[in-house]
Simulated scan of single mutants.
Amino acid sequence: MTDHTSHNAQDASKSDKGYWEANVRIILISLVIWALVSFGFGILLRPALAGISVGGTDLGFWFAQQGSIIVFLALIFFYAWRMNKLDREYGVEEE
């Protein structure tokens, strides 16, 4: 293996590592938001949100029934948008 080939392999390895670190970071952020909204707001913080009215019901109940679904759908679109952008940055986008 020549020195040039070894250097390119190291660059590719660093690029792959950076891509996967960014990918995992996006996934973890999305999971934390999802858990906070669905479990946190819908269950744990529901009594604290009881005084806030949304659509004729309290905010905690709304998050448990509607809000977590809406946030989950928004996270799906965010993840797809951000991964497409990340794919373009690292040159691994689909054709």
Rank of each mutant, 00 (worst) to 15 (best):
L28N: 00
E94H: 09
V92P: 09
G91N: 08
A74Q: 12
G55T: 00
A50R: 07
I26F: 12
F39W: 08
T5Q: 11
T57H: 01
F61V: 07
N23Y: 01
I43L: 15
Y19C: 11
K17R: 13
R88I: 02
F72Q: 14
F39G: 08
H7R: 07
L75K: 03
G60K: 10
N8T: 07
S30L: 04
A22H: 00
A64P: 04
V32Q: 01
L86D: 03
W81Q: 12
S6V: 06
L36D: 02
I43Q: 02
G51M: 08
A50Y: 04
E89R: 03
A35E: 13
A80N: 03
F41K: 12
M1V: 15
D11L: 15
R88G: 06
S68K: 09
G56I: 15
I76W: 13
N84F: 11
A12L: 15
V92D: 12
S6P: 00
G55P: 02
G18H: 07
S30R: 00
S13V: 07
A48K: 12
L28F: 00
H4F: 10
T5R: 07
A22E: 01
A50M: 06
P47Q: 09
L49G: 03
P47T: 05
T2M: 11
M1P: 04
F61I: 01
L28W: 00
I26W: 07
F63H: 07
K14G: 14
I52C: 06
L28M: 02
L73Y: 05
A35S: 10
E21I: 04
S6E: 11
D11T: 14
L31P: 04
Y19V: 15
L31V: 14
R88F: 01
Q10H: 12
I52S: 10
A64F: 13
A74T: 10
G51S: 05
F72I: 15
R46M: 08
I29S: 00
N8Q: 14
I52V: 03
Q65I: 03
F63R: 02
P47I: 03
F61Q: 11
A80H: 02
A80M: 13
S15F: 12
G91W: 08
M83E: 11
I33S: 00
S53G: 14
G18P: 10
I76S: 09
S15W: 07
I27L: 13
L59I: 10
M1G: 03
G60T: 12
V54I: 15
L59E: 03
R82S: 14
V32C: 01
E21Y: 05
Q66S: 07
A64Q: 05
Y79A: 11
A50V: 02
L31E: 04
W20S: 13
R25D: 00
T57F: 01
S38W: 12
G60D: 02
A9R: 02
G18V: 12
A64K: 03
L28I: 00
